[in-house]
Amino acid sequence: MNHPPTGELFRTGAGSDLVLTRSFRASAEDVWASITEPESTARWFGPWEGDAAPGRTIKVRMAFEDEAPWLDMRIDACDPPRRLALSATDESGTWRVEMLLSEAAGATRLRFVQHLDTEEQLGEIGPGWEYYLDMLVAARDGSPMPDFAAYYPAMRPYYAELPAQA
């Protein structure tokens, strides 16, 4: 899947938000299942295990990363089928993300938001989320899975320059 980068950067009182959007010809409930059910997330991000509830921590296998590590993710908010907020900390720092779904006229829009404490790694972060969101699209529609090489380093300059444009 070759398309231009879609991410936008918005400054907030608490930092910056990186926002990427995808649309699906499906109900919000159907898309919600794709981003929350372990057998569905396994196809585009990685499987997870644990007791999924707000305030709880689940273990997520980063199936498409080198060595497929497990990562603890805290469920900060869960409002089916509209909002899922997760956070995690690893050697790269703290990750705070939200997936916001809105449905209209038989289509669902997914707004993926990463709340950033710093904009320093946008050149790496943005292409990664583009890749994962396109993996979600491919997993849902049965198209071939994208190759990360099509995203990075090709999209790096776009994302590295976003802070100057925001």
Rank of each mutant, 00 (worst) to 15 (best):
M1C: 10
N2E: 15
N2G: 12
P4Q: 13
G7Y: 00
G13Q: 11
G13P: 06
A14R: 15
A14K: 15
S16N: 08
S16R: 12
S16G: 11
R22G: 02
S23N: 09
F24I: 05
R25E: 07
A26D: 11
A28R: 13
E29Q: 14
E29S: 15
E37S: 09
E39D: 15
S40G: 08
S40Y: 11
R43K: 13
W44H: 03
W44P: 10
F45V: 01
G46W: 05
G46I: 02
P47Q: 01
P54M: 06
G55W: 10
G55T: 04
T57V: 15
V60C: 09
E65D: 13
P69S: 08
P69C: 07
W70T: 08
R74P: 05
R74L: 07
D79P: 11
R82A: 09
R82F: 07
R83D: 06
L86G: 05
L86I: 12
S87F: 00
D90A: 07
T94I: 13
V97H: 08
M99Y: 07
L101M: 04
S102F: 01
E103S: 08
E103A: 12
A105R: 12
A107G: 08
E124I: 13
G126N: 06
G126A: 04
P127L: 06
P127W: 03
Y132I: 02
L136A: 10
V137G: 02
V137R: 15
A139I: 04
A139W: 12
P146D: 04
P146A: 02
A150L: 14
P153S: 04
P157A: 06
Y158T: 06
Y159K: 03
A160G: 05
E161C: 02
E161T: 09
L162S: 01
A164W: 00
